[in-house]
Design a protein around this nucleic acid. Structure first.
Lengths: 212, 212
DNA sequence: ACAGTCATTTACTAGCGAGTATATGGATTA
DNA sequence: TAATCCATATACTCGCTAGTAAATGACTGT
């Protein structure tokens, strides 16, 4: 079959796929460095070295540094958006939906591209990409807010200003990207479940079912 | 009295005070630019221009750009630390204390130096200042965590991992610095009260006192 | 065999911005 | 009135890094 031959005589599709994979490899090397050292402190020579190539090779796959950062955050934002849309299309009351959404959101925040989203400030992107970045974030915010509103409407979520409630929730979740350490004892799921429990239950203890 | 004469024949103390005030003025111009455009995108020429002076004047008050950023975050962190320590020294149960602390914390996050704290990533500071920055943040984290633990111990706060609960709370509060707009309709207190209400009460609605 | 395309290299440009050397003039002290 | 200090300015250096020009060699399709 083709797969054994492809190393020596790759087909057109093989080469297209390889190009995409190399592009992704650049993004992965870049996002790790961005998360570790920050966007400005990461030179494209750094990224190139991490991949054992030279800088012009990177420019063969991307127009400029901006585009690299944007593609990183886009991947993170797309994951969140897909999670949010999945939740909207499934059933359940507002709180139930929001709970699932927050859990998925939290887990994405423990991963490279997710971390990159909240560690990247708007002003690190320039011009067009910045506008797109903002638009994507706004879109997600609005989806989350709709779920919150739905929950308030069906009575499964306590009343309040949906905008402020949404910011409070996403703030707590976004912040995971600033402290989570994949090498630590806690898995992403542990962190996600704990965050959801605190946000849903609140700090004040709830009486048990039978209690007065 | 001295104040009328001081403009023409300033005393030694007057001149010391003026020096301190000019230092603070530099910090204020700097922090505004840092918050608006980011640390790297802010050149010291920008800061100097905002004050109608030139760059060497700034170096007359600060050793380097690093020191300027550090002094900015230190002011923000000091405010939070004072709020945290004040709460610890006052009375009240764990939840009551934490509620006050979170409110103060939130309000600080709407102000210039507070915003700067959470918008500044560790790696923007170098060497010594970075270590101090981390240490100050850790100290605050531990104080908050102690209050959380106290509340869990006295039963006023629901059980859970104090570390994760603290991160969830401070995350929500830190994030205020990323979206709060002082020119908007909401005052800092409105935002603070809303955030505290959501975090204390949780998303799930609570039954009223008499309800089954 | 040939013209073209692709991936990658070496070697460069160009601009920005942190930080400095040095000058100036006004006030302070001796 | 000389020596000194303080705040500020002008005019510079130097390093870093984004981005580019041009070459090379492998492979492709004709």
């Amino acid at each position: 079959m083709a797969s054994s031959a492809k190393a020596l005589w790759p087909s057109v599709e093989d080469r297209e796929r390889e190009r995409r994979e190399k592009r992704e490899a650049v993004l992965h090397a870049a996002v790790r460095s961005f998360n570790e050292k920050g966007f400005h402190a990461t030179s494209l020579d750094d990224v190139a070295n991490a991949l054992n190539v030279t800088k012009p090779t990177i420019y063969h796959y991307f127009a400029n540094k901006d585009e690299i950062l944007f593609e990183c955050v886009r991947r993170g934002l797309d994951s969140i958006r897909h999670a949010a849309e999945a939740v909207e299309s499934e059933g359940g009351g507002g709180l139930e939906r929001l709970r699932r959404l927050m859990r998925d959101y939290a887990i994405i925040m423990t991963r490279d591209f997710g971390m990159c989203v909240t560690r990247t400030a708007d002003h690190e992107l320039s011009g067009d990409s910045r506008a797109k970045f903002r638009a994507l974030k706004r879109e997600i915010d609005q989806t989350v807010r709709r779920v919150v509103e739905q929950g308030m409407a069906d009575g499964s979520i306590a009343g309040g200003d949906p905008r402020l409630v949404t910011f409070t929730l996403t703030g707590a979740l976004n912040w995971i990207a600033h402290w989570y350490d994949p090498r630590g004892a806690l898995g992403a799921e542990d962190v996600a479940d704990a965050a959801v429990a605190t946000l849903v239950g609140g700090l004040a203890p709830r009486r048990l079912q039978g209690e007065r």
